[in-house]
């Protein structure tokens, strides 16, 4: 279970949000809303630990995520605006290296399977610099297929993806939720999920968060 308690973040001179609290249970998806610059990305980065909040804390199963350190980060996968892949490496190499870093090394066969599943058949061993934006995004997202992290934090995961890929990613997210995972997501697209699994959080509205 993820709890966010009285979180406050300041970027530059601007207080993006303060006294923000919510909790996320297994099998739930949190959809963040808010206009550009309302602090969606900052909130996500603060939750996964890339940004130190000015006040408040993030609790994982009741314990501070900062204290848990690596025990927390291995439960989390973060996909940001940047794909986190190396242009000079192939999809296979990228995926295997990021998995090795995440502490769950995968075999070459698993990497091939994952990339094929996400729709990159035939492009698996090309350097990613020759791929299109959408294909690069797919390589970046392929971590979700092989990873065992329970909390997914996805910042605009659907950008640059075509319709088929969007559909596929939605089904992956749904499967993760059904298996008791947690997802925090920002997107301008509607995600079709069972009602009751989805929580909504509006940012940049009255300067305070509401669930």
């Amino acid at each position: 279970m993820l709890q966010v308690v009285d979180l406050e973040c300041v970027r530059g001179d601007r207080r993006l949000f303060s006294e923000l609290s919510f909790e996320l249970l297994p099998g739930e998806l949190l959809h963040l809303y808010g206009h550009n610059g309302s602090g969606k990305t900052t909130l996500m980065r603060a939750i996964c630990g890339l940004i130190q909040p000015t006040a408040g804390e993030v609790l994982w199963n009741g314990e501070s995520s900062r204290k848990l350190a690596e025990d927390f980060t291995q439960e989390v996968i973060y996909v940001g605006h940047k794909n986190g892949i190396k242009d000079d490496l192939s999809g296979i190499e990228n995926l295997r290296i990021s998995c090795a870093l995440d502490g769950c090394p995968i075999s070459e066969q698993q990497a091939w399977d994952a990339l094929e599943e996400i729709g990159l058949r035939g492009q698996e061993d090309l350097p990613t610099q020759v791929l299109s934006q959408g294909q690069k995004r797919r390589v970046g997202l392929s971590r979700l297929l092989v990873h065992k992290a329970r909390l997914w934090i996805l910042d605009e995961p659907f950008t640059a993806l075509d319709k088929a890929a969007v559909g596929f990613l939605q089904s992956v997210i749904r499967r993760h939720i059904d298996q008791g995972g947690m997802v925090i997501l920002t997107t301008h697209q509607e995600v079709t999920l069972t009602e009751g699994q989805v929580k909504r959080l509006q940012l940049g509205w009255k300067e305070e968060g509401h669930v």
């Binding site: 630990g49 890339l50 690596e70 025990d71 973060y78 940001g80 605006h81 892949i85 990021s98 870093l101």
Partner: peptide, 19 residues
């Protein structure tokens, strides 16, 4: 930093100093 792999390193469940 530019391609985002640094973020992954920061979030990897490994001591950052080892990386």
């Amino acid at each position: 930093y530019a391609d985002g792999t640094l973020e992954q390193m920061l979030l990897a469940p490994q001591p950052l100093s080892v990386l």
